[in-house]
Design a protein around this nucleic acid. Structure first.
Length: 138
DNA sequence: TAGGCCATCTGGTCCT
DNA sequence: AGGACCAGATGGCCTA
């Protein structure tokens, strides 16, 4: 029974899927299978319409270069955190003209500049080749 | 080809 | 009881 329920049903209705199993299984497992497919559909809908939209909404708030740069979900989360830190630094110093400095202990002169300040500072010139925009720690 | 990323399925837990 | 939420497993796609 467990094996029978362990199937994919994204592309077909549960009734369609029922035709591919034995009549015994069909007769005994139909209600459970239907419930499972309904639960799958709800979960699919939740992922697509709640989780992914939330990620997309968050993505729109993160400045990148280029603006439409593709970000993975983990990058969105990490950069959102970095961006909040960046805004917090600017709020703390009260000086929006001065680039905020990262609070971590990086020694490289280039890397001591906040990732998001790079965006403002380097708008007219490209960054050094060893510094990529919005690096995410991996 | 290995690794990263993603969508989907699944079963468990919690909530209403 | 049924739905929402969550995390693990799995398989497909893409890229270096």
């Amino acid at each position: 029974m467990e094996n029978f329920l362990n199937y994919q049903c994204a592309e077909e209705t549960w009734e369609q899927r029922m035709f591919s199993v034995s009549s015994y299984q069909h007769a005994t497992a139909q209600p459970a299978a239907k419930q499972r497919c309904q639960a799958n559909a709800r979960e699919r809908d939740r992922t697509q319409n709640s989780v992914n939209i939330a990620f997309n909404t968050l993505r729109l708030l993160i400045p990148t270069e280029p603006p439409d740069r593709k970000l993975s979900k983990i990058e969105i989360l990490r950069l959102a955190g970095s961006y909040i830190t960046h805004l917090d630094n600017q709020l703390y110093t009260g000086d929006l003209e001065q680039p905020c400095l990262q609070k971590n202990d990086v020694t490289d002169e280039d890397k001591s500049l906040c990732t998001f300040c790079w965006s403002a500072v380097k708008k007219d010139k490209s960054p050094p080749p060893h510094v990529s925009y919005f690096k995410s720690p991996r």
